[in-house]
Design a protein around this nucleic acid. Structure first.
Length: 292
DNA sequence: TCCTCCCTGTTC
DNA sequence: GAACAGGGAGGA
């Protein structure tokens, strides 16, 4: 369940392992793991890795131009490789002779700057994730990309709050909506709402502007703390180095239904909001507006 | 605006 | 052997 802090950690740990290496091939072991809108992966060949970044929950492997081509890259040339890990996706760098595991879906071959051959494995047990090779043109055509909301850590709280309050759905549903704000998933939505003292079912439009801004600050606070701890490892998530994150030890509500609230000792309640398991403190988290 | 589906490993 | 985990697409 990589969310923003986990994907950020994966990008940061993956980059030094593959930056400067050149793609020499790709093998798709499970066809549905390659997005339907992807350029053919053969077009990767010869492109060096320029860097690894993140946008929302997407890992973006930037491609540098092929060094020895006379033709200039244009709008339809491969530009970046996007990877959505969804629930159980992982990216690991292995030696050139490593054999795929039972959940390996796509294998990228790379030649490192030192001449060594490496393989980048995209593993994904539940096969929800995907890889997608994009040109500047196909990136601009990708509806998901075009409509992705702003990065919470790079957006002023007042602007984020304005976006949240423009909807009347439950605030948790709005936080999870990637069109409103990018990168927030079930864990950090619950944690931010607890810190802000807001009931997850509160209609977003009923939250006063100041409280909505406070929520956005709490959200950024919990995201930064989680990044500092290399994310949260619940089940499958690992950094690109194979290490677990540590922020799962700092959860105040997520996964703690029935346990005492850390602030008031009231047993934490469980609900289903926006189709997602939701944990909250019925005493500390205030429900504003709307019917009971 | 909400629900269902996709998918499979893990837990009860 | 059923329930559960959940991001995003698509449909009611």
């Amino acid at each position: 369940m990589p969310e923003l802090p986990e994907v950020e950690t994966i990008a940061r740990t993956l980059e030094p392992l593959i930056r400067g290496a050149t793609f020499t091939g790709a093998r798709v072991l499970l066809p549905r793991s390659l997005s339907a809108g992807s350029l053919p992966l053969e077009q990767l060949d010869g492109h060096p890795v320029g860097g690894v970044t993140r946008r929302g929950k997407l890992v973006l492997i930037a491609l540098a131009p092929r060094p020895s081509r006379l033709t200039q890259p244009d709008d339809t040339s491969p530009h970046c490789l996007a990877v959505h890990l969804k629930m159980t996706g992982r990216l690991f760098v292995h030696p050139g002779n490593a054999v795929p595991g039972p959940h390996t879906r796509v294998i990228f071959s790379l030649r490192a700057a030192d001449g060594e051959c490496r393989q980048l494995f995209f593993d994904d047990a539940r096969t929800f994730g995907f890889v997608r090779l994009l040109s500047p043109a196909s990136l601009a055509d990708w509806a998901f990309w075009r409509t992705l909301g702003p990065e919470p850590l790079e957006t002023p709280p007042a602007e984020l709050a304005r976006r949240l309050r423009a909807h009347n759905r439950a605030i948790k549903a709005v936080l999870l909506d990637q069109h409103v704000v990018a990168g927030v998933g079930n864990i950090y939505a619950d944690e931010a709402l607890f810190r802000a003292g807001l009931d997850p079912r509160t209609p977003a439009g009923h939250i006063p502007a100041r409280r909505a801004q406070s929520l956005c600050r709490r959200l950024c606070e919990v995201l930064r703390e989680a990044i500092a701890q290399c994310g949260s490892s619940i089940r499958d998530y690992r950094t690109a180095r194979g290490d677990a994150g540590a922020f799962q030890n700092s959860f105040r509500v997520y996964g703690r239904a029935g346990e005492p609230c850390l602030a008031c000792a009231t047993p934490l309640a469980r609900a289903r909001v926006a189709g997602r398991a939701t944990v909250y403190c019925p005493r500390c988290q205030e429900r504003l507006g709307g019917a009971e």
